[in-house]
């Protein structure tokens, strides 16, 4: 049975960077950031492409975000997605995962979907909520933190990672939603001809009318606000050993001896 797979991708600021809080305190400064595909979404994308290669069908990469996300969608096309779709919601920060999940669900409802994949969490906002929200809104059975996916006879078997390395294996009927864990597979590199081709491929843009909405201001059962961002209060900070490498090594060795971890 050919599979229609929709994979949700997010472009995030590289979390290895340093961040400053923007004037007003409601967002980070974005003028100097560089963006990349969220880490676990890379695995979700790879899983989507592998599934459609194995079973036939199509893998569609879907995102919500400003124009800059087109670069990420082209990367997805070069790595094997058949189509790229951008929900043209231009808010650069999207702190309210509830709104994002609702908009993504509305878009997915307009697309054929046997399987919806997301990454397990975005490394910028770390909500681990988008996939579950979409599943709840669309009424799809779902599994989270998935490290292994096997589709057969209209069902999917998924291994879901728990704390402590245990895996809970679940069997779900399609259509279903899975949130894919970091490390679930080995993502491929895009071959150069595919990168060249992806640069010319169209990206489908969805505005509010395409989702059946008069505007992006959808009714929500709650009000949401960012009260403020701040640098986290240091819980306590390590006693730092300074100096040259030799001085640091000398002090570290002394501490290990004093605490009795080294005999001599």
């Amino acid at each position: 049975m050919p599979l229609n797979v929709v994979v949700c991708l997010k472009q995030i600021p590289n979390p290895d960077l340093q961040f400053q809080i923007a004037p007003g305190g409601k967002d980070i400064r974005r003028d100097t950031l560089n963006y990349k595909l969220n880490a676990s979404d890379e695995y979700a994308l790879e899983e989507a492409v592998r599934l459609k290669e194995k079973h036939g069908g199509r893998a569609v990469a879907l995102t919500l975000g400003p124009k800059r996300t087109e670069q990420m969608l082209r990367e997805a096309l070069a790595k094997g997605a058949d189509e790229a779709v951008r929900i043209a919601y231009e808010d650069v920060a999207t702190y309210d995962v509830g709104k994002v999940g609702r908009l993504l669900a509305l878009a997915i409802r307009t697309m054929p979907h046997d399987l919806v994949l997301t990454g397990v969490q975005s490394d910028d906002l770390v909500n681990s909520a988008t996939g579950g929200l979409i599943a709840g809104i669309l009424g799809l059975p779902h599994a989270s933190v998935v490290t292994r996916v096997e589709v057969s006879d209209g069902r999917v078997e998924a291994a879901s990672e728990l704390e402590g390395g245990l895996q809970r294996v679940l069997n779900l009927p399609l259509p279903a939603l899975l949130t894919i864990q970091f490390g679930a597979n080995t993502p491929r590199y895009a071959p150069l001809p595919a990168i060249m081709k992806a640069a010319r491929q169209p990206i489908k843009e969805l505005g509010p009318p395409a989702l059946g909405l008069p505007s992006w201001d959808i009714p929500l059962p709650y009000s949401f606000g960012v009260q403020g961002l701040s640098p986290p209060a240091a819980k306590g900070h390590a006693e730092m050993i300074g100096g040259s490498i030799e001085e640091q090594a000398k002090r570290l060795a002394q501490i290990l001896r004093e605490k009795g971890f080294v005999r001599r």
Binding site: V126, A129, L138, H142, E163, P221
Partner: peptide
């Protein structure tokens, strides 16, 4: 792993507000 499997699906299916982690 179980809590963030359940919480968003619950919020999505009942149309409730959600904040996680």
């Amino acid at each position: 792993s179980q809590g963030y499997d359940l919480a968003p699906a619950l919020a999505g299916s009942l149309d409730l507000a959600l904040v996680t982690n």
